[in-house]
């Protein structure tokens, strides 16, 4: 099943050599681990021939999308490992995106129906601070697992050393909006800093952090594909950033004043429950209309009740 790819021993040997070369000369290097989503199920349903056809098509896609000098092999199982030397991080991201998109366009015929597949790709890059070969391979594998667990049809890049180095000083560089993992870490770190030195509010910090991170996770799950997904993520990052700024301001206010609402008041602005709304006049009319409708309903219900009580009394 090698289909011209290096076997596990060969690819390991070559990747070690590439990694050593990268460290010695300071050249960039990326490892990609590529897996077909739900390949096992497809094999169970449509047989070995279909599985081989799918792997062969992925192999062709990889060859067409990489350079002749890039190394492709099977480390174990059905995932393919690609070692791509002399590639900057952003170009490695583009390559992974191109592979995910390319896989979406592949079609296969089996049992009279058209099958489409998706792939999950894990990406590790030397620019992300990985210091050993084993860790870099592991990061690519972990990232592929994460991409698969999140529903597949995506790539994930592990950046172990980026998040802890987040600087929140005013002059700190702003990360690219598409780097969602970095943004998540930034949000988390900002919240922690907002409450630093206030030990009594550790629970509040944890609670807020949990809510925001859960929201980020949920929104990742909901995201759709392609360009619209990218735009949606950018909008969400911007929105979360805005929520964070307001949360920080509210936290400072709560911590300093210990107002009557306590921590609950933090959420009121964040959830858009502030009183400085636009369209105040229009909203007032609408709210009055809702109230009037409910008041009318209340009166009708009370009249019904009193008339049925009267009828009950008369019958008794």
């Amino acid at each position: 099943m090698s289909q011209g790819l290096f076997n596990p021993r060969e690819i390991h040997h070559l990747m070690v050599a590439e990694f050593d070369r990268s460290v010695r000369f300071g050249t960039p290097l990326a490892f990609l681990q590529i897996g077909v989503d739900r390949l096992g199920y497809l094999h169970d349903l449509y047989g070995e021939e279909s599985r081989q056809e799918i792997l062969s098509a992925i192999n062709d896609l990889l060859r067409a999308s990489t350079r002749a000098s890039d190394l492709l092999g099977y480390p174990d199982g059905d995932r393919i490992l690609a070692a791509v030397p002399h590639i900057e991080g952003e170009h490695a991201d583009l390559l992974a995106e191109r592979l995910v998109s390319g896989a979406r366009g592949l079609t296969f015929e089996a049992d009279g129906r058209t099958l489409r597949i998706t792939v999950s790709i894990g990406l590790a890059h030397t620019a992300d601070g990985t210091t050993s070969f084993d860790k870099m391979v592991q990061h690519a594998r972990d990232a592929a697992d994460l991409a698969s667990v999140k529903g597949g049809d995506r790539f994930h890049r592990v950046r172990p050393d980026v998040a802890p180095k987040v600087e929140l000083s005013p002059g700190a560089p702003v990360p690219a909006p598409s780097d969602t993992q970095f943004q998540d870490a930034l949000l988390a770190e900002s919240l922690k800093q907002a409450l630093s030195g206030e030990g009594g509010h550790a629970l509040l910090a944890q609670e807020l952090l949990g809510k925001i991170m859960a929201e980020v996770e949920t929104r990742f799950e909901d995201s759709s594909s392609g360009d619209s997904r990218h735009e949606m993520l950018e909008r969400r990052v911007a929105k979360l950033g805005d929520m964070l700024s307001r949360t920080e301001a509210q936290l400072r206010s709560v911590l300093s004043s210990q107002g009557p609402e306590g921590v609950a008041s933090v959420y009121q602005d964040v959830q858009g429950l502030d009183s400085s709304e636009s369209n105040v006049g229009q909203k007032k009319d609408l709210l009055t209309a809702i109230f009037d409708a409910n008041l009318r309903m209340k009166k009708i219900i009370e009249e019904d009740k009193s008339s049925s009580n009267t009828q009950g009394n008369q019958s008794t």
């Binding site: 009121q268 959830q271 858009g272 429950l273 709304e277 909203k283 709210l287 009055t288 809702i290 109230f291 409910n294 008041l295 209340k298």
Partner: peptide
């Protein structure tokens, strides 16, 4: 639910009292 919450929050207190 978020929209209903916003309506609840924006509703004048006297309306709530009357209902």
């Amino acid at each position: 639910a978020n929209g209903a919450l916003k309506i609840a929050h924006d509703m004048p207190a006297e309306y709530w009292e009357q209902l």
